[in-house]
Amino acid sequence: MTTTEGITEAIRTHILAEYLPGTPREELETSYDLLDNGVVTSLDLLALISWVEQRFQVPIDEVEISPDHFRSVDAMSEFVKRTTGK
């Protein structure tokens, strides 16, 4: 799970399972805006951040976090890569 594709797919799997049950995998484009379109709400954001922290060992305390980092699967993937140096 160190490739970009691996990270992206793991995030996509999690988003589909947690927030979009029943949605076909290919339907969720990695650039889809999860925040504006109400998939991930402000209340969900905390849980999502903590999932990313644990799943990818992101040093959450050391990095600046903005909701924009969780706007899409791509954005999250980018955030994970940047903060973990993967």
Partner: peptide, 14 residues
């Protein structure tokens, strides 16, 4: 469903 979400997002508060 995701397409419909975008439709909603353009017209409704979050």
């Amino acid at each position: 469903g995701l397409g419909l979400r975008q439709h909603c997002a353009q017209r409704l508060v979050r």
